[in-house]
Simulated scan of single mutants.
Amino acid sequence: MTELVVIRHAETAWNAAKRIQGQQDIPLSQRGRLMATGWTVPQDLRRHRWLSSTLWRAKETAHLLGHPEATPLAALNEMHWGAWEGETLTDLRARHGAAMAENEARGLDFRPEGGESPRRLQMRLRPLLARLAETRQPSVAVAHRGVIRALYCLASGWDMTGRAPVEFDRESLHRFVLSGGGTLAILRLNERMRP
């Protein structure tokens, strides 16, 4: 069994405005930088290998947590929201009405216009999970909300339909364990990083 710990990047101006970032390379806001510098990473993670998405908000968060050496991997990038990046869900729901509701009801097969589905994101993550399981080196990944939700779905079997069984706290880390072939299981969710 190999531990995989996932941390969501700190806040950006687009997060505060509830705008969908997707793969837009938005930096942390000043508030986000202060947020990340206030987080305390548990001592047991100091010897883990550190990874991050290639997007600046994740790389900067890893740096502020004391890990500028974190390896950037495109597999950890946020779900691509295509033409909807920069929009808000409220505006999209108002503009697309019933079509948006039907799309959202598809769960893992929800697909933004010109973007990728959560299921496609999972497919992007699976080879990385298999490699991490094979190397057996505990790792911390600084990534994104969509990545955390996709991993949770792989571990729990939730298909993203209906209300989410768990809310992921922004200032928490989430512990998973990997077994043979990259099979994922939940160890502990929402472990707070603030004292």
Results as ranks from 00 to 15, higher is better:
residue 184 L to A: 09
residue 57 R to V: 12
residue 41 V to E: 11
residue 87 E to C: 14
residue 45 L to T: 12
residue 93 R to N: 08
residue 131 R to E: 15
residue 186 I to L: 12
residue 3 E to T: 14
residue 185 A to N: 08
residue 17 A to L: 03
residue 162 G to M: 05
residue 146 G to H: 03
residue 96 H to K: 08
residue 75 A to W: 09
residue 76 L to G: 03
residue 26 I to C: 02
residue 82 G to R: 07
residue 187 L to V: 06
residue 63 H to N: 09
residue 157 G to V: 07
residue 37 T to D: 12
residue 5 V to I: 14
residue 59 K to T: 14
residue 64 L to A: 05
residue 101 A to P: 11
residue 156 S to C: 03
residue 186 I to A: 10
residue 125 L to H: 08
residue 175 R to W: 10
residue 168 F to C: 00
residue 60 E to R: 11
residue 164 A to Y: 07
residue 172 S to I: 07
residue 62 A to P: 07
residue 195 P to H: 11
residue 129 L to E: 02
residue 29 S to Q: 03
residue 112 P to Q: 12
residue 102 E to A: 15
residue 137 Q to H: 08
residue 39 W to V: 13
residue 31 R to N: 14
residue 93 R to L: 10
residue 40 T to F: 01
residue 5 V to F: 01
residue 15 N to K: 09
residue 25 D to L: 11
residue 8 R to T: 03
residue 162 G to Q: 08
residue 59 K to C: 14
residue 163 R to M: 01
residue 171 E to K: 07
residue 104 E to A: 10
residue 40 T to Q: 15
residue 192 R to C: 09
residue 178 L to Y: 06
residue 190 N to C: 06
residue 106 R to S: 13
residue 172 S to R: 04
residue 171 E to R: 14
residue 122 Q to D: 11
residue 127 P to C: 08
residue 38 G to T: 02
residue 44 D to S: 13
residue 42 P to T: 06
residue 53 S to N: 02
residue 118 P to W: 11
residue 158 W to M: 02
